[in-house]
Write a protein that binds this DNA or RNA. Structure first.
Lengths: 154, 154
DNA sequence: TACAGAATGACAATATGTTGTCAATATGAA
DNA sequence: TTCATATTGACAACATATTGTCATTCTGTA
């Protein structure tokens, strides 16, 4: 089967895309491993971290994480059932309650973040900080580039 | 809540990780959009592409894509039910049949790849090829760095 | 104020992916 | 050759996430 022709730039972007997706799968697995000793997962950790950063509604967290709000709602309800977060009245919105960490949630998040710090320090030491920063910057620019046309497509 | 201290390198790596995961989610969404007109998804596309690249067993594809073989099996069975792939006898292994694209599968993959080429060309043109290549190289090095300790952890 | 449109949570269906288990099959070392 | 070990597909349970729909609540505008 003949493959459609791509420009050299197109080839570069395609290879870049596949690398990002593949590495992301591995990084998520790492996140799960970091969260597991606390009985949590990568997804729950992200919601805990978002709620810890600022009191937000489920829909707010969905926007920040780039996830559908329904998925975040599912995680948040599970975290509430486990006593790691609670819903607080939102003076600005009757339905959109604010997600707040309980003290148990704070402890759990702190445990995960402690493991994450050791992990990030060890891996960060294997690379030149300048390379990581330059790479992160390109990733951010691509994300911007993606966000623009995407808005007009939906 | 006090956050655990990280080294500067650790901070850089943590920021890098989050960027990768976030961009990956967006790129997967792009892949779904590219595959959708052919009635497919990003995951099915990846399996089709792997099978097209070389005749492999389900477990082989899982390794290449970095996914559990059970997940790939599920997709492959769906693709077989839709007539896009078929299982062929593997002379080297009685159980591990080889995944082969049917002509319908070839056509479907080609349609998706045609759309992908236009997409990659357009986005590739927005960036310096050298930046993309350097970034891809760092991503590959991180993947390597992750693969090494991971083996000893499991 | 009134009301159209957006945002939100609830609910359901579906897609993707991991983990665990089991039996069948390969593989490699003694 | 024999046998412990690894690989593989099948099956099941579960976690994650998207899409779609609906009623409720908010918001901005006329």
């Amino acid at each position: 089967m003949k493959k459609p022709d791509r420009t050299a730039a197109g080839d570069a972007f395609a290879a870049f895309s596949m690398s990002v997706i593949r590495l992301s799968a591995h990084l998520s697995a790492e996140g799960d491993a970091l969260a597991k000793p606390s009985g949590q997962t990568s997804a729950r950790w992200q919601v805990l971290a978002a709620a810890s950063h600022a009191n937000m509604s489920v829909a707010d967290i969905g926007r920040i994480l780039g996830l559908a709000r329904q998925g975040v709602q599912r995680i948040a309800d599970l975290l509430e059932a486990e006593g790691l977060v609670r819903y607080e009245e939102n003076p600005a919105h009757q339905r959109a309650k604010l997600l707040v960490l309980t003290s148990e949630g704070e402890t759990t998040l702190h445990d995960i973040q402690t493991r994450q710090a050791a992990w990030a320090d060890a891996l960060g030491a294997e690379f030149r900080a300048e390379d990581l920063r330059a790479t992160t910057e390109v990733l951010a620019r691509v994300l911007d580039g993606l966000a623009r046309p995407k808005a007009s497509r939906r």
